[in-house]
Amino acid sequence: MYTLNNVTKTYRGHTGELTALRNVTLTIPDGEWVAVQGPTGGGKSTLLQLLGALERPTSGRIDFGSDSTAVQLDALAEGRLASVRASQIGFIFQGFNLIPTLSALDNVMAGLRPIGIRGAEAARRAQEALEMVGLHDRVEHLPAALSGGQQQRVAIARALVKKPDVILADEPTGNLDEMMRLDIISLFERIWYEQSVTLVMVTHDSSVASRAQRILHLENGSLLADIAA
C-alpha cells in the first residue's frame, strides 16, 4: 500500500531546476495492477523511482507498507531505503539491466544477496524463480547468449526471487518485438495473479494499459487522470 501526499520531485542540474513531478497525491492499495501512461518527459519514470525507493521526493510525503511494517519513504536514510528495496520491491527495467558477466542463475541470485540469502539456498530459490518464468533450461547462459525476451524473463525472476510486495516495471516491453511483448505481459499478469503482488507498470502501449485495473495519466509532472478500468 502506497500513500502519496503532495509529492513533488525537482531536479537541479547545470541547466537550472526542472520539476519532474508536481504535487502528486494518490493511494495504491495492496494487490492493485496499475498502468502509468503519458507523453515522454511526463514524469512516469520519476514516479516509479519514488515508489521504488530509488530516490526521495523534494517535498511531500510517501508512506509505504501496511500497519506494522509501514515506513515513510521520504524520511528514510540511504541505508534504510536500500533495505526496503532489497526486501520489498522488485524493479524491472526497459533495458533488462542484467549483469553481463554473470550467468542467468547468478543474476537472479544477485537479488537475494542483500537480504543475506547465499549459497545453496540462494541457488535453489533462484532456480525456482527461473522455472516460474519458463527459463529452467537457460540457467548457465550469460545474458549475451539470451534473446531480449529471455533476458527480460531473467530480470523478472530476479525481481520475483525475493518474494516482494511490489513489482515496479518501467516500460518492460519497450525493447521487445510484438511477439515477445505479449508473452511478457501475460507473464506479468500471471505473476500478479499467482503471487498477489502490487504491480505498477509504465507503458506507452494502450492495449497493455487497458488490461490494468487502473490507469494513471501523467503529463508535465502532474497527475492529469486517474481512471479505474
Binding site: A82, S83, V84, R85, A86, F93, I99, A110, G111, P114
Partner: peptide, 9 residues
C-alpha cells in the same frame, strides 16, 4: 546502479 536498485548497500 542496478545492484543498488536491487537493494545492494
Amino acid at each position: 546502479g542496478t545492484l543498488k536498485a536491487l537493494g545492494w548497500k
